[in-house]
Simulated scan of single mutants.
Amino acid sequence: MSTTPSASASTANQPVPAPPPGCPINAEFLPPNMRKHVDPAAPPPLRMMAAKALVPLAPSDMLGALFMLTFDADAGVRETATKTAAALPDRFSAGLRDENVAAPVLGWFLTLLRAKDVYAEMLVLNPTTPDEAVAEVARDCSQKIAEIIGQNQLRVLRHEGIVRNLCTNPNASAALLDNVCDFAVRSGVIGADIPQMQAARVRVFGPQAAPPEPGPTAEEILQEFQDVVATDKPEDENAPPIEEAKKLSLTQRIMKMSIAQKIKLATLGNKEARSFLIRDTNKLVCTAVIRSPRITDGEVLSCATNKAVNEEVLRIIYSSREFTKNYKIKMALLKNPKLPLSVGIKFLGTLRENDIKDLSRDKNVPSSLQGMAKKMLEKKNEPKKEDK
Rank of each mutant, 00 (worst) to 15 (best):
I316N: 11
W108Y: 13
A65T: 02
V289S: 05
P20H: 07
L348P: 13
K388S: 14
S302H: 00
M197V: 10
P59W: 02
I242T: 10
S142I: 12
N306Y: 06
L110F: 05
M34C: 06
L334T: 08
K338H: 10
I356W: 01
S173P: 15
R78Y: 09
K116L: 00
S320I: 01
P89V: 09
K262H: 00
I25D: 08
M372S: 13
L154W: 02
M122G: 04
K247Q: 03
L334E: 11
P19S: 08
V77A: 01
T305Q: 15
N100M: 08
K116S: 03
I317C: 12
V228F: 13
K283E: 15
P366K: 08
A103G: 09
Q198M: 04
N100F: 04
N165A: 10
A200G: 03
S360R: 10
V101C: 01
I278V: 05
S319R: 09
L265D: 12
R253S: 07
M68H: 09
A103M: 04
T305R: 15
R203K: 12
H159W: 01
A53H: 02
V229F: 06
K384W: 09
D61A: 12
P89A: 09
R164M: 07
S367F: 09
C141N: 04
P56C: 05
G64H: 02
K388T: 12
L166S: 04
R201G: 03
K271I: 10
N306P: 13
E243M: 14
R291Y: 04
N126I: 03
P19E: 00
L166Y: 05
A304F: 05
A27G: 15
D39Y: 11
V156H: 01
L69Q: 03
P211F: 11
L348I: 08
L112Y: 04
H37Y: 08
S8A: 15
L54F: 08
Q143W: 04
P44M: 13
F347C: 09
A308Q: 14
L351K: 11
K379Q: 13
P43H: 11
K385Y: 08
P195T: 03
E311L: 07
P104W: 06
G371W: 01
R315E: 14
G344S: 04
T350H: 14
R35G: 02
P20L: 02
T168N: 07
I190A: 15
E378A: 13
G215M: 10
E235G: 14
L341G: 01
V285D: 03
M34D: 02
D362M: 08
D178W: 01
G298Q: 13
E132K: 13
I290L: 07
F71C: 00
D90T: 12
L154G: 08
A81V: 02
F29I: 08
